[in-house]
């Protein structure tokens, strides 16, 4: 099963995604970390997320580019965090997929789903604001928006976390837990 978790910044997406993984029960839990530690702020952010995950039995695998090449143990549950970093890495890092970013990432997501029992992907809403951008930033919004739509199409569950409250945009009919029903 594939779950897509989205939402704004600082809204509790990670905590929700971790809980979702734990709710799948005992399994080999893999955390795919995509944030490239390039400055003090990103180091702090990574440390905060590590502390949140501590004691939850995750094995961390770093993946900055090339998601389709990652090897996972059989029958595991996977939490990938987050798509917004992975997309930026693929677009702007030297060994990234650049103009083929969307296809490379979708191939990677299919590759995860083929190996894992449950996959949870955290992404970001970066599409509603007054400021307008140009060049690379617009292209980044365009790519991430398209990736989010494509993953949502493949997913059984799409959840927007609003200040810690799950709002389901897509969910399996058998599984009613909290949030605004759609």
């Amino acid at each position: 099963m594939l779950t897509l978790v989205t939402g704004g910044s600082g809204s509790g997406k990670s905590a929700f995604a971790e809980d979702r993984i734990l709710s799948f029960g005992e399994a080999k839990r893999i955390y795919i970390a995509t944030m490239y530690p390039f400055d003090e702020e990103s180091h702090k952010r990574i440390a905060r997320h590590r502390a949140m995950r501590a004691g939850k039995g995750f094995e961390t695998k770093e993946c900055y580019t090339g998601l389709a090449n990652i090897m996972l143990p059989e029958d595991c549950t996977v939490l990938l965090e987050c798509m917004s970093n992975l997309t930026a890495n693929e677009m702007f890092q030297q060994d990234g997929a650049h103009e083929n970013t969307v296809e490379a990432i979708i191939r990677g997501v299919r590759h995860l789903c083929a190996q894992a029992r449950h996959t949870v992907i955290v992404t970001n809403e970066i599409f509603s604001e007054a400021a307008s951008y140009e060049g690379d930033t617009v292209l980044y919004q365009n790519y991430l928006g398209e990736i989010n739509c494509r993953i949502a199409e493949m997913a059984e569950e799409v959840v927007e976390v609003v200040y810690g409250i799950p709002v389901y945009h897509k969910k399996k009919m058998t599984d009613h837990k909290g949030g605004a029903e759609k």
């Binding site: 600082g10 809204s11 604001e129």
Partner: peptide, 21 residues
Amino acid sequence: EVGYGVVPVDSFDRAYREAVG
């Protein structure tokens, strides 16, 4: 709600946006 945009370039704006969240 102020967290639905591109990560701001300005460090105060980034910190503010995350703090509100």
